[in-house]
Design a protein around this nucleic acid. Structure first.
Lengths: 327, 327
DNA sequence: GGGGAGTCTGACAACGATGTCATAGCGCGG
DNA sequence: CCGCGCTATGACATCGTTGTCAGACTCCCC
C-alpha cells in the first residue's frame, strides 16, 4: 500500500480511501491511485484490515463429521450459500466423530476469530465451547444438541421419524422388527432408538433385545448385526436402519441373501427410488438443516440476543416399496 | 495480551514468549503468565500473529463446482486431510460452474492471503489467476486444466476412459452408441467426447451426429437427450453418459421405459453395484484426485519450483452388467 | 574485586491497514 | 480583506502480535 501511495504520489490514507470507496477523494486523484494499484498488482490485505477495524473477519467455521458423507456435504453447501449471501466465507473441518478432533477444530477456528461457529457435536461434553461463546462468538449446533452448553440447536424429528417407520412396518404386518443404529452415545442414534421403542410399544410389539444392534456404521459391523438379527431362531422380518450409512451397508449385505426382509431407513439417499425394491425412508433435507442453522447463526451475529432456541425440523416417511416386502 | 501482561506483572513480550513456547522464560514467571491467561480466558489472535510474522496464514483455498456433488465432496475431504497433516485449514467455495463466481471466490481467497489455491477451473479463461500466481500464491488445478495460465494440473484419463467405455460396448455387439455429455465448453466433456469418437473410430463404428447430445446434466435436458437418441428411426442400443450427474438422471429417465439400452457411465457412484442391472462405470477416485492436487500444492508451498507438471490419473472400467444389456 | 558468560526480561518498532484529527486551499459574502 | 464553510488530503496513532536489541542481574573464575 505504501508502494501504491508512492507511485501515485499520494499518502497511504488516500489509497485506503480509494480502496474502500470512501467519499471525498478527487476523481483525478482516485484514477491515479487506481492506475498505480493496477500497475503494481496491489491487493488489499483483508487480515490487516480486520485487525485494524477490530470487528468481523467475514468468516464462519463449520465443524462436522465428514464432508464426504452426502448428508454433511448437502448441509455444507447450504451453509456456504447462506454465508455467501451475507458476504461471508466458510472454514470447514471434518471431525470424523472424534471429540478431540472436534475440539481442536473448534479451537483453531476460534483462534482465527471466526465470526460464528456451526458445530455438529460429537462426544459427550461441549463445555469447552463455553469460553468462546462467552467471549462473544455465536455458536449454533446442528443435527445434535450440545451437552454441557446452552446454544441454539437445529435438529430433525428423530423420535417422530423412528415412530413413523415402526408404524409403517407394523401396518404391513411386521411384528419382529430389528433396529440397526449407530453407537448409542451418539445423540441421533439414541433418539431414534427411543422413537423405535415407542413405536413398538404403540403397535404392541414385543422387542427382544437381540433385535437391537448399536454399532458404528461400517460394512463389517453392519454385516455382523444383520447376521445377529436374521440368522437366529426368531429372525426379524423387517429392519429399521438408523442412518444413511447403515442403510447402504445393510442393502449391500442383504444383496447376497436370497430372502430379503422389509426395510425402512432413516435419511433419504440418492437412487433409493431406483433400487428394486425401492427403499422406503424417513426423509429430511440436509440442506434445510444447514440453512436453518446458518440463518440462526447470522441472526445471532447481527445481534439477536433472545434466549437460545431449539428448532426441530419435520421428517416425512417416503414409502417406496421396501417397507412392504414381507417374508 | 496487554491485560494478561498487566495481571501477571510482566511485559507483553514475555507473555508472547510464553504463548509461543519460546525458551528463556523462568518457570515461575511462565506459570504466573499461564495463570493470568487462564483467568482472563485469553486467546492469541492468529491473524495479528500472521500479520507480524509476515508469513503463511495456515490456510488454503479450494474452489470447486459444488460441494454437495459426491465427486467434489470426496475431493474436498481428501484436500482437507492433506491440509490437516500440514497443520493447515481449508476455505471452500462452490462456483456452480459460473466463471464469474469462480473468479470472485479465488480473488476473495487471495485477499485473505491463503497460502495456496486449488481450483477446479470453470469457463474459458483463467488468466485472471496469473497475478496471484506471480505474487507467489501457488495454484494447482484439479480435474480440468486452466486456460491461459500455466499451473500444476491433476486430471483423470478422460480420453482413455471414454475409449475403454466404447470398446466395452462394442465388444458386446453394440454399433449404435449414444453419448450424453455435459456442455462441450467444459474440458472434461470435450475430452470424453474426443475419447468417445476415437473409440468409435477404432471399433469401426459410424457415428451419426444425432447420437451425440451435449447439454447441462439436469433432469430435463437429459430427458430430452434420451428421447432424441432412443425415439428416432435408428435408435441407440447403448448409452455412454459423460459424468455422474448425467448417469443418474439417465437412469431415472430410463426407469420409465420398458426397453432399456446398455449403459456405461463416466464416474463411479454409490450404489451403482446394487442397481439392477448394476451399472458399468469408468471409475476413478475423487479422493485420489484431491490428494494428488493437495500434495502438489504443499510441495509448491514448501518451495518446489520445478516447472509446472500435468499429472493424469488412471481410470478403470468396472464391468457390472449394464454394459452388456442388449436390445 | 573485576570481568566475561549466561539467564531472564522489557522497550520499541514494525507487519498492513484504517479512524481521528488537523490543515491547506478554495470560493464567497459582508 | 477577513473569516466562514467546504473539499481534499495527510500525519499519526492504533489494532494484537513478534523480532531486535539492550539492559539488569547472577554466577563463577582468575
Amino acid at each position: 500500500m505504501t508502494d501504491v501511495a508512492r507511485l501515485a504520489g499520494v499518502s497511504v490514507k488516500t489509497v485506503s480511501r480509494v480502496v474502500n470507496d470512501e467519499p471525498g477523494v478527487h476523481p483525478d486523484t482516485a484514477s491515479q491511485v487506481l492506475a498505480a494499484i493496477d500497475s503494481l498488482g496491489f491487493r488489499r490485505h483483508i487480515g490487516a484490515s480486520n485487525l485494524r477495524r477490530g470487528r468481523s473477519t467475514g468468516t464462519v467455521g463449520l465443524v462436522l463429521e465428514d464432508v464426504s458423507n452426502p448428508f454433511y456435504s448437502g448441509l455444507t453447501r447450504a451453509v456456504e450459500e447462506v454465508a455467501r449471501s451475507h458476504g461471508c466465507q466458510v472454514l470447514t473441518g471434518s471431525s470424523d466423530a472424534d471429540p478431540t478432533r472436534e475440539h481442536q477444530l473448534a479451537a483453531e477456528f476460534c483462534a482465527r476469530r471466526v465470526d460464528g461457529l456451526i458445530v455438529v457435536p460429537t462426544g459427550d461434553q461441549h463445555g469447552y465451547l463455553a469460553p468462546e461463546q462467552h467471549a462473544g462468538t455465536p455458536i449454533v449446533c446442528a443435527d445434535r444438541p450440545p451437552r454441557g452448553l446452552t446454544a441454539d440447536t437445529v435438529l430433525v424429528d428423530n423420535v417422530g421419524g423412528a415412530r413413523a417407520a415402526v408404524a409403517h412396518l407394523a401396518a404391513h404386518g411386521h411384528r419382529r422388527i430389528a433396529f440397526l443404529g449407530d453407537s448409542s452415545h451418539i445423540f441421533t442414534a439414541g433418539e431414534r432408538l427411543r422413537g423405535f421403542r415407542e413405536g413398538c410399544a404403540l403397535a404392541g410389539i414385543e422387542l427382544p433385545e437381540h433385535l437391537i444392534q448399536m454399532a458404528a456404521p461400517t460394512e463389517a459391523s453392519i454385516g455382523d448385526a444383520l447376521r445377529a438379527v436374521l440368522d437366529g431362531p426368531s429372525p426379524a422380518t423387517a429392519l429399521f436402519t438408523g442412518n444413511n450409512r447403515a442403510t447402504v451397508h445393510a442393502l449391500r449385505a442383504l444383496h447376497e441373501r436370497d430372502h430379503r426382509p422389509a426395510l425402512v431407513g432413516f435419511d433419504d439417499f440418492e437412487l433409493a427410488d431406483l433400487l428394486r425394491p425401492a427403499v422406503t425412508v424417513i426423509a429430511h433435507d440436509p440442506a434445510e438443516l444447514g440453512r436453518a442453522a446458518a440463518e440462526r447463526l447470522f441472526a445471532r451475529m447481527r445481534g439477536d440476543s433472545t434466549p437460545a432456541k431449539q428448532v426441530v425440523l419435520p421428517v416425512r416417511l417416503v414409502p417406496r416399496g421396501s417397507g412392504e416386502v414381507s417374508t
